[in-house]
Amino acid sequence: MTDQLKEQIAAYLRARMPEAGDVEIVALSRIHGGASRETFRVRASLGGRERGLIFRRDPISTLIETERQIEFAAYRSFHRTDVPVPGALFLETETQWLERPFFVMEEIEGGVAASILAANPYGEHAEAIGEQFFSILGQIAARDVASSELAKHLEKPAPDKAWQRELAHWEKVIDEDELEPQPIARAAIRWMRRNPPPPAQRISIVHGDYRTGNFLHDGNGRIIAILDWEMAHLGDPLEDLGWALDPLWSHHNPAKPAGTIDRAAAISIWEKTSGLKADATALRWWSMFASLKGLAIWISSAKEFQNATNTDPVMAFSGLYCLPYHNKVLADRLVEMQS
């Protein structure tokens, strides 16, 4: 795989960057963890100058069916803003180069991403990371939608319809992909329809998968890149907050979202930077939604693995660990609502 892929990438770079001169691939390795795209770290010599690049290629089968144009546009929407993202360089929709469509980004060097199973991934820098994590999320919510690259690709829902669209989308995923009946998911969906949230205060860019593990930090308390924008869309910014606060991403300590700071402090930082209010009723709804959306993703990944359309072990892990985890979170919340 490696030699052939090296050749293919070199040929692509020669064609795409003729001004670079001689092109040689010095190193190529696949990065573990991305279930939505195959991600390769490429060290390329371009005219004698070494440069780090990231290639994100569509998989044969995907955990999340997303448009690569949207992810590409999301990176472009935030490049050179206070939301740190790598530069998005090229988008290729043709299959002639790497058999499948892909896009190319700058590599952020020296960045570390946390494993969701790690107990205390940020150590003494947990507070600093938490403050930045929720502050950046507030900045994403505050970003002007109309002037962003993403606005060209995405439909803007009405403020009172954002929740309906998202709930219908993920319900459809469950309808299509469940391998066995899901009574907890169904009960949660009915509860959410009977108890809708208030209209969105604003329609914002929603990252869609804003959580620990999807950003790079420098190991010294600084977040240097927000990654994995493949589920980006326009909607209620509380959707991202609910997802970021979900206990699955808390590194075994739900009192400290993302394994960083107290929940109340996290919400307060988000409110300050977004200029929005995290209304308790609305956030309760979006928190329920976050766990349902998680469940839908894990149901899909379990199906992919079971049907051998994607046998990456991450897919089996999602079905075996994450699916029962979110079932428990939702079941607890539904009991709470009963009382």
Partner: peptide
Amino acid sequence: LQEFATARQIFLPA
């Protein structure tokens, strides 16, 4: 359903 979900959880060490 809560009882079912509790019994089906998988324990993972950090």
